[in-house]
Design a binder for these strands. Structure first.
Lengths: 139, 139
DNA sequence: GTTACATCCGTAGCTGGATACGGAGTCAAT
DNA sequence: ATTGACTCCGTATCCAGCTACGGATGTAAC
């Protein structure tokens, strides 16, 4: 069931993904990462798929997903029921698209700000908030 | 200095932006929102620019920015020094662009998942994690 | 001018997410 | 077979970001 090249210990995994060891244990407790069974009271070994999964959690978190939402996303990845997964995926997809739209709006304004500041001196009115506000009311 | 049509009380502002009153007070304490001076020990009034600003905080938070980062963004908006602002804006811009790239990757995979689930029955391998992994290592 | 309700403000408490701690067990190298 | 570094696991603590509480004050309606 598992890649035979599970060679790392938890410390190596932590280093590979650049997270704290205790964070890995915490994610395991939350069910975000599954802990490989340990050979006769021995020490657990991890492989590259574990790095991927861990990195995914890390990244998604930075994108503003809660651990519960990430858990949802991971359940999709894990197969589960295809119909259920599809519904969930559509829901998350919408969620993600909204985020992209709003980020793009911020991007645009930041870009303009940089441009204007480079172009001229003195204080310029930088409508960061208004721009986002449009986004909110229209979306 | 302020729009004369500051007509709302804090409760109205809270309702308008759909946040908890205490959250507004908290943001004021953190310096994210400025509290209008209150007329001779009276009650503060808020206007539409306050709603905008508050909505901005709310939205940015959902996009994964910390309150400190949001504070940075708001200082940009507030004018400050143009050169300093420009540097900060460029930095944030890069940050935002990375987020967009990663979200788009998630979007793509979710989209594919939905499509595949609609197209066929049974469990399909849905490479959500791998796709994001590429993104991380290449970005 | 009293009732009903909101604001104000300081402080305490809560939740999610992560870290720290410490004693017992494991393992590899010498 | 002992040392040194690491793992395991349960529990405790920490931090950000709120949310609740409560008593004093303000205010609009009757």
């Amino acid at each position: 069931m598992q890649n035979k090249s599970n060679t790392m210990t938890i410390g190596g995994l932590a280093k590979a993904a650049d997270v704290h060891i205790e964070t890995i244990r915490y994610y395991q407790r939350r069910g975000l990462l599954k802990e490989p069974d340990r050979p006769l009271g021995g020490i657990r070994r991890y492989g590259s798929t574990d790095i991927d999964r861990l990195m995914f959690v890390k990244t998604a978190k930075e994108l503003g997903f809660s651990l519960n939402e990430i858990s949802d996303l991971l359940r999709l990845e894990d197969g589960a029921n295809c119909l259920e997964a599809s519904a969930l995926a559509e829901h998350k997809l919408e969620h993600v698209r909204k985020k992209i739209v709003r980020l793009k709006r911020i991007e645009k304004v930041l870009h303009e700000m940089v441009g204007r500041c480079h172009a001229q001196q003195g204080n310029v009115f930088c409508p960061l908030i208004e721009s986002l506000h449009e986004g909110i009311t229209k979306a």
